[in-house]
Design a protein around this nucleic acid. Structure first.
Length: 553
RNA sequence: GCGGGUGUAGCUCAGUGGUAGAGCGUCACGUUGCCAACGUGAAUGUCGUGAGUUCGAAUCUCAUCACCCGCUCCA
């Protein structure tokens, strides 16, 4: 990576902290990896981004291909859903198992094909892995259980462990396993309750038999240690922490939309083609969060699921799914460009061949070249998902092979709608906006400034009396009060005018109005442009109109 | 997850075993007439956290947390 872009990233991070865009979460306690807070300016910026998206995609969407209008509606779904949702979507099944990779041929296998969970009970909880290992050598195993059972049949697994540890089943409440990723040893957390419902928690060290004694069945190569691949955060619904109460924080907002597809169709008089949009938090327990806010464990998505008629049911007049896909791809690219992501750093990339999910007919990642990497990183994926999602939920929820099919009166046909999914990261676009806006011009007295699109700027205008005397503050204050009725604005009469301009430059405020000596004579004030530093005079009565004109882009 | 590096004021950093520091920023007062001006003053520190060694630790040792870099991972 070029060191100059790395240095730029550090400057951006420093500015974001200095001016209150982004803070590390829980910083006073040493932080927590993968979580971030937005400060006062960052909160406004992100809110503006979400508002712009909601306005441009949902409330006032563009006209479709061939001049076709379509409907867009919104939902706001719960973060915790019935766990069956995630079984249907494939988030539980496909990626919940610890996996091992062959170091030679790169093949991947489920770890339970190679490993057994060996449970030894010792009295105290050791402090370190090395401690644990030395303890384990001295203690006879109490159980030797195929690790697979934990995932394929949690209740049976629980029973086996209870029996091995002589815990009577009725008092057993919960079981957590940790340590697979730590190289094969870890602990079982066991919560029990007695007759009086007094809870107690204890930890039992366990050893997952090393995979090093196994070889790759395909090429006889060396295998890695098992690694846990489920990125979903788990929690328990209800006071009892029973395995049957396990639920997940959603890893994407899309499934809430699919799960409500019928509800929306039945309640809002929408007709195919139409879209359902949602903005909301999602959670992924990333193994290795990195690159500032780019890969966070808690993040916000802006997703559209657009439902359209499958090609085989389209009349000549209908827009095909592939046309809708291309339409949304282009709409989304133009949207970023319209909000000042104009540099060649914005790079749409069509996925090819193996990269596509098996159900996906086409997908474009809209990528941006952040200063922290030599490679472009995904801001948004626009995917043609066929009928996969609605079919999956149809099978799991209704037991029907044809999924959530609808009867289309106009086309006299029954079908499962196809889905085009533009799925954008609100935090990623916020970060891209910050990186793109960050500008250094050494010829300026205040070299660093943020060239935000006026629509996204956290503060739209500032009002300054040139000096805090001679009646200037008294003229400035009413002007400020008028402006803040219209737009987020700031008033500042302290310190030198240059320092006040510099502060607004770093906040990315597009316009500063200054009341000076001439104001009293001819009622004009100066407007300073953030990007050029140029000043022009306008009458103080026209400030509102000036801003309305400049900001209604 | 592995390996390497870093952690002292809001920021950038100095401080190698003996009183916690500088510049910038922030705030106050004064001054100031258009771009981080000037003067005076002030506030801001669990020296990342915890243990150990020592008469004494920001400094040495260990652990831990966070961040950065490289692998790995990113459905």
């Amino acid at each position: 990576m070029a060191t100059d872009t790395k240095a730029v990233m550090e400057k951006i991070v420093a500015l974001c902290k200095r001016r209150g865009f982004i803070f590390q979460s829980s910083e006073i306690y040493g932080g927590i990896a993968g979580f971030w807070d937005y400060g006062p300016l960052g909160t406004e910026l992100k809110r503006n981004i979400k508002d712009a998206w909601w306005n441009d995609m949902v409330q006032n969407p563009p006209i479709g291909p061939r001049g076709k209008e379509f409907q867009m509606v919104g939902v706001d779904c719960s973060i915790i859903m019935n766990p069956k949702v995630w079984e249907a979507s494939g988030h539980v099944g496909g990626f919940s198992d610890p996996m091992v990779d062959c170091k030679e041929c790169k093949a991947r296998f489920r770890a339970d094909q190679f490993s057994r969970l060996v449970i030894r009970q010792i009295n105290s909880v050791p402090k370190t892995i090395d401690d644990l290992r030395s303890h384990l050598e001295d203690v006879e195993p109490k159980a030797d259980i195929l690790a697979e059972d934990h995932f394929s049949d949690p209740q049976e697994y629980t029973k086996q462990i209870c029996s091995a540890l002589r815990i009577k089943k009725p008092t057993f409440e919960a079981l957590t396993i940790s340590g697979y990723a730590a190289g094969g040893s870890g602990s079982l957390g066991i919560l029990t309750s007695d007759k009086n419902e007094q809870f107690s928690y204890r930890q039992v060290p366990v050893l997952l038999d090393s995979t090093s004694k196994y070889r790759c069945p395909r090429c006889n190569g060396e295998l890695t240690e098992p690694r846990q691949f489920n990125l979903m955060f788990q929690t328990y619904v209800g006071a009892l922490q029973d395995a049957s109460c396990i639920a997940y924080l959603r890893p994407e907002t899309a499934q809430g939309i699919f799960a409500n597809f019928k509800n929306v169709m039945d309640s809002s008089r929408v007709r195919i083609p139409f879209g359902i949009a949602q903005i909301g938090k999602s959670f992924r327990n990333e193994i290795n969060p990195r690159n500032y806010t780019f890969r966070s464990r808690e993040f916000e998505q802006m997703e559209i699921e657009f439902f359209c008629t499958p090609e085989e049911h389209c009349t000549d007049d209908d827009v095909t799914p592939m046309e809708w896909y291309e339409f949304w791809r282009d709409v989304r690219i133009k949207w970023y460009e319209s909000l000042n992501i104009k540099s060649d750093k914005l790079r749409p990339r069509q996925q090819e061949g193996d990269e596509l999910a098996h159900y996906s007919k086409a997908c474009t990642d809209i990528e941006y070249l952040f200063p922290f990497s030599d490679e472009t990183q995904e801001l948004e994926g626009v995917a043609h998902r066929g009928c996969y999602d609605l079919s999956q939920h149809g099978k799991h929820a209704k037991g029907k092979e044809d999924g959530f099919s609808i009867y289309d009166d106009e086309r006299k046909a029954k079908y499962v709608p196809h889905v085009i999914e533009p799925s954008a990261g609100a935090d990623r676009f916020t970060l891209a906006t910050i990186c793109e806006a960050y500008t250094v011009d050494e010829s300026r007295p205040s070299p660093e400034f943020m060239r935000f699109h006026p629509r996204l700027a956290p503060i739209k205008a500032a009002v300054f009396p040139l000096v805090a005397k001679d009646g200037m503050p008294e003229i400035a204050e009413p002007i400020f009060r008028e402006i803040k009725k219209l737009y987020p604005a700031q008033f500042d009469s302290k310190q030198s005018i240059g320092k006040r301009y510099a502060r607004m430059d770093e906040a990315g405020t597009p316009y500063c109005f200054t009341i000076d000596g001439q104001t009293k004579e001819d009622n004009t004030i100066t407007v300073r442009d953030r990007d050029t530093g140029e000043q022009t005079r306008i009458s103080k009565e026209s400030v509102g109109n000036f801003l309305r004109e400049k900001l209604s882009i």
